[in-house]
């Protein structure tokens, strides 16, 4: 169960989701991915993405502009 940290700061839509999707695709089932983005649209995007792809998402934390989420590959 590998843990990957993704720094997606500075990227604009749709790149944060693209980079996260690419990383999750490469990973194995059960791997976790902690992604941080400062794109204002990241929160609704990641919620929709997780719902659609079925990879469980746990906890959204916010610090200033940064939004961090953890995705577990299903």
């Amino acid at each position: 169960m590998a843990k990957t940290t993704l720094d997606l700061k500075g990227l604009s839509c749709p790149m944060p989701i693209m980079k996260l999707a690419a990383a999750v695709k490469k990973g194995a089932s059960g791997d976790t991915f902690e992604a941080t983005s400062d794109d204002a649209g990241f929160e609704p995007d990641i919620i929709a993405w997780a719902k659609e792809t079925g990879h469980p998402m746990s906890g959204i934390t916010k610090a200033g502009k940064d939004i961090t989420v953890t995705i577990t590959k299903k």
Binding site: P14, I17, M18, L20, A21, A22, A48, E52, T53
Partner: peptide, 8 residues
Amino acid sequence: ANGALAMG
């Protein structure tokens, strides 16, 4: 297109 691809 890219968004949809990211969503599988």
